[in-house]
Design a protein around this nucleic acid. Sequence first.
DNA 1: GCCTTCTTGACACTTGATGCCACTCAAGGC
DNA 2: GCCTTGAGTGGCATCAAGTGTCAAGAAGGC
Lengths: 222, 222
Amino acid sequence: MPYMTPRYDDLVNPRPDTSLAQRKRQLVSDELTEAALQLLALKGFDGVTVDEIVAAAGVSKRTFFRYFASKEDVVVQFLAGMGADMRDELAARPAAESPSVALRHTVQVPVAACADHSDHAARALRVVRLILRTPALYARFLERQAQWRDALATELAGRLGLAPDADLYPRLAAGMALSAFDTVLHRWSGSEGTEDPVVLTDRAFAVIAPALDEVPRPGGAR
Amino acid sequence: MPYMTPRYDDLVNPRPDTSLAQRKRQLVSDELTEAALQLLALKGFDGVTVDEIVAAAGVSKRTFFRYFASKEDVVVQFLAGMGADMRDELAARPAAESPSVALRHTVQVPVAACADHSDHAARALRVVRLILRTPALYARFLERQAQWRDALATELAGRLGLAPDADLYPRLAAGMALSAFDTVLHRWSGSEGTEDPVVLTDRAFAVIAPALDEVPRPGGAR
DNA sequence: GCCTTCTTGACACTTGATGCCACTCAAGGC
DNA sequence: GCCTTGAGTGGCATCAAGTGTCAAGAAGGC
């Protein structure tokens, strides 16, 4: 089930460089994304067909599937780069930092992206709400989270000098951190964006920190 | 995205009672499940069409969709009753038991079902492997896990006298427990069933227990 | 001007999934 | 014994998601 090339970075800070062809491509993609989100938020995921979306965007259906691997992908691509961002953040954290602190800052990266007080935040809230209340989209989101967990577990194992697959700790720690992320999104979405997701994240990590910081010694328990 | 009536219990211990009509229905369902799992394990999820399955089972395609909400559902239905079972187990645990112990026994219910040394175990391993390595199925599995998490969080909140939605703890604790479950399944599947999933579960819970047993006092932190 | 490359649109096709109608058959009333 | 009823079923038509293929058009190099 291959996803297309991540465009999260492009969406966050559209780079002015690159060729004309690539900017045209970006334009079509934005048009498609805009039309799709507009319709999906209005009529629900199953209430909108791809034909409607492409009609609104003024392109052919075939073109749609050149930009997005599936209808779900239109929404999920918003999250595409988050995994890489989190992994990079975790890799950049000082080695001396405890797992709970490092992972907390890691999770804060996408959380802060949602929380920034701009027009971006309102759109992020709409997308998150759509994902959380549409089973098909939520399933894809969780699948994406599972990939993030693998990446974070690998990075964490390297950080701590543990064999990536020998110990249960890295995968569990990554799972706990993402569980916190998920819980924060639910609360944030449920509160209509009134609660501060950054604060929620801190509170969530206060709960899971006792387990995160019980690191097994390298080469210890099989 | 409504799933059909759970039949996990029927599969675990087929009840001999009920009317003739219901037994006929059970027969068709079993035939369909058997044919589907046989083909899916052999040719992969996308390598098998519904038409092949119904041809092998000797029924029409229309009938297939009367028993299963989707092709994915054939596989996922194996897990249908696990959520209820876990919730029941958690509800039945003594109130004095700490969250980590209660949740560990809760997760051991489905784990033990996989581990029992019968012909059932081999089939369970095949199904788990199929789910874990098929993105579409794994996504559905995770979606199902999310439902379990909600149920477990509600049950846990009731156990501890916490408001279900006021505190982050119940949802996080349930998420951690299911994260352990998921990790155990991966390890068990990866080891081709040689590792004992019950032991793996105990080890996983040893990692997350420090966080699980830091219960916030009822009505404490907002 | 010509050629190459990339992008797009149009069409046909496969497959998952659903609606509709007719048929079968067991159960129960008369 | 016959008829009705209702659940289960098969066949067919249909919709929507997604893919393969090919021809047409625009950008850039020669």
